[in-house]
Amino acid sequence: MLEIEDLNISIGAHQIVSLEHLSIPAGRRLGLVGESGSGKTMTAMSIIGLLPREAVVTGSIKFSGVEMVNRPERELSNFRGSEIGTIFQDPLRALNPTMRVGKQVGEALRLHNTVPNKGVKQRTVELLDQVQLPDSAALARRYPHQLSGGQQQRVLIAMAIACNPKLLIADEPTTALDVTVQKEILELLARLSAERGMAVLFVSHDLGVIQSISDHVAVLYGGSLVETGPTDQIVGSPRHRYTEALINVNPGHPEDIAASLGKPLITIKGSVPPLGAFLSGCRFRGRCPHEVDTCATEPPITEMPDAHSFKCWNPVPTTISLAPGEAGLAKESP
């Protein structure tokens, strides 16, 4: 349903994102994970054409067969809100502080003429019920600042799904929330996606959050897609050295607290280089503990079963028997 091919985003002389291929089938949930500066927000925003003016986009983003790249703003804005819904990290900034929340949800409905004017009020209350806001009729008359962070995010979700979008872009929607609220919002998004057959592009720096919501994961590093595949494979048997490192640095929920207490965490050496300071070849070069000579040249994409692919010269060895074309590339590490 969403197909991205050879997407390149650059600002000035700096190339910010360079993706070979990424797709989300209808009704599936893809998690886009990366650290700050990985280009994950840029990638998500390029789908709906919300990039800084200076950004130059080439390649192809097809949404239900329609090309989105370099489409005029007027046509893109038709997609935003109706076919593609969006939610952001800071709900309070995304809501109009002077407008009652019910009215704002109603605006979203009216803007794309999905329901007759008479039905707007009733539909608004239905939507607020669907995002599990308590006492929705009374809550619709409140102003954003009178709601808690979790409730604000639910209102934003209600606005985003008002026109039954086929795709929901969620950019760090739970990062600012408490862990208990975070869990509820993630469950809500998963349920809405399943009920409505709505695809979700979930952007986050937190692999734990991604794991709890997505079927597929795409790992970005330095604007390059280093690994993509089904969530349990990515987390359970990552192949790219960066994915492996990203999993290792995450403290995760310790099963044996007494044993892990006070033990140092595994780290990645160095830090993400600033834009334009990446070495040629593999983006992770210079920080990777498993570097080989060939890493100075761009690694090829290795395809594996189950739509799992990665770009690494010296991948994490796997116990699964290797696919034919891959045998030469996977060296056994010491």
Partner: peptide, 23 residues
Amino acid sequence: TDPKTAYTRTLVEASRATSLARF
């Protein structure tokens, strides 16, 4: 491992649900 109050239990469970679980 053995929260004595319902609130702590909710907190631990929410943390478990949203933290990375390795296989």
